[in-house]
Amino acid sequence: MTISENEIVTRNENVVAREVGGETVLLDLEAGTYFGLNAVGGAIWTALEDGPRTLADLCSLVASTFDAPDDVIESDIKALISDLQANGLVA
């Protein structure tokens, strides 16, 4: 699936999150499955608490917080969002 920079990302309301041991752990209440996020993924998940965001918004957030080239940030976020979508954690 190709994700555009204007695509809106929103969290699934049936997912709860907690920080455990330096990572964010997501629990899909419907499926009963867990999913772990590193610091960058956790920052993205936290940003989505305030409501839907575009991919471009999420890239800007990560670029302002973490030191990495823009193309790497965009590629990594697209991969994360695709994975989260595949697991029903975001829409």
Results as ranks from 00 to 15, higher is better:
Leu84Glu: 09
Leu29Asn: 09
Asn12Pro: 11
Arg53Pro: 00
Gly36Phe: 06
Val9Lys: 06
Ile8Phe: 01
Ala43Tyr: 07
Ser64His: 09
Ala47Trp: 03
Ile77Pro: 01
Ala79Arg: 14
Leu48Gly: 06
Gly21Ile: 04
Asp70Cys: 00
Ile77Cys: 04
Pro52Lys: 03
Val9Gln: 06
Glu7His: 12
Asn14Cys: 03
Phe35Gly: 12
Ala31Val: 08
Asp70Ser: 14
Asp83Ala: 15
Val16Gly: 07
Ala86Thr: 11
Leu80Phe: 04
Ile8Gly: 00
Asp83Ile: 10
Val90Phe: 08
Glu19Tyr: 14
Arg18His: 14
Val90Lys: 09
Ser82Ile: 01
Gly42Tyr: 11
Asn87Gly: 07
Asp28Gly: 12
Ala79Asn: 13
Val16Lys: 12
Ala43Glu: 09
Leu29Ala: 08
Leu48Cys: 04
Ser64Trp: 02
Lys78Trp: 01
Ala86Ile: 02
Glu7Lys: 11
Asp57Lys: 03
Ala17Leu: 08
Leu48Pro: 03
Arg11Ser: 05
Arg11Tyr: 02
Glu49Ser: 04
Gly36Thr: 15
Thr46His: 05
Thr54Ser: 15
Asp70Gln: 13
Val16Gln: 13
Glu49Arg: 06
Val40Trp: 04
Gly21Thr: 09
Gln85Thr: 06
Glu13Val: 07
Cys59Leu: 02
Thr10Asp: 07
Val90His: 09
Thr10Arg: 11
Ala63Lys: 06
Asp67Ala: 04
Ala47Thr: 01
Asn12Glu: 11
Leu80Gln: 10
Asp57Leu: 02
Ile3Asn: 04
Ile73Gln: 06
Leu89Ile: 04
Val15Leu: 09
Leu58Ile: 10
Ala17Glu: 15
Thr24Tyr: 10
Glu5His: 01
Val62Gln: 03
Thr2Gly: 01
Leu80Asp: 05
Met1Thr: 06
Gly21Cys: 06
Glu13Asp: 13
Met1Asp: 09
Ala47Arg: 08
Ser82Pro: 00
Ala43Ser: 12
Asn12Tyr: 08
Asn87His: 15
Met1Phe: 10
Asn14Ile: 01
Asn6Gln: 12
Ala17Ser: 15
Phe66Leu: 08
Thr10His: 03
Leu26Lys: 14
Gly51Val: 04
Ala17Gly: 12
Ala31Phe: 02
Ala39Gln: 14
Asp71Cys: 01
Arg11Met: 08
Ser64Asp: 11
Ala56His: 08
Asn87Cys: 08
Ser75Lys: 14
Ala63His: 08
Val90Glu: 07
Glu5Ala: 04
Glu5Asp: 11
Arg53Ala: 01
Ala43Asp: 03
Trp45Glu: 08
Thr46Ser: 05
Val20Tyr: 11
Asp28Gln: 12
Pro52Phe: 00
Pro52Gln: 02
Ala86Val: 05
Leu55Ile: 11
Asp67Ile: 07
Leu29His: 06
Leu29Met: 15
Asp50Ser: 12
Asn14Met: 07
Gly51Pro: 01
Ala31Asn: 14
Asp76Lys: 14
Asn14Asp: 13
Leu37Cys: 13
Ala31Gln: 13
Ser64Ala: 12
Ala91Ile: 00
Val9Phe: 06
Thr33Tyr: 11
Asp70Met: 11
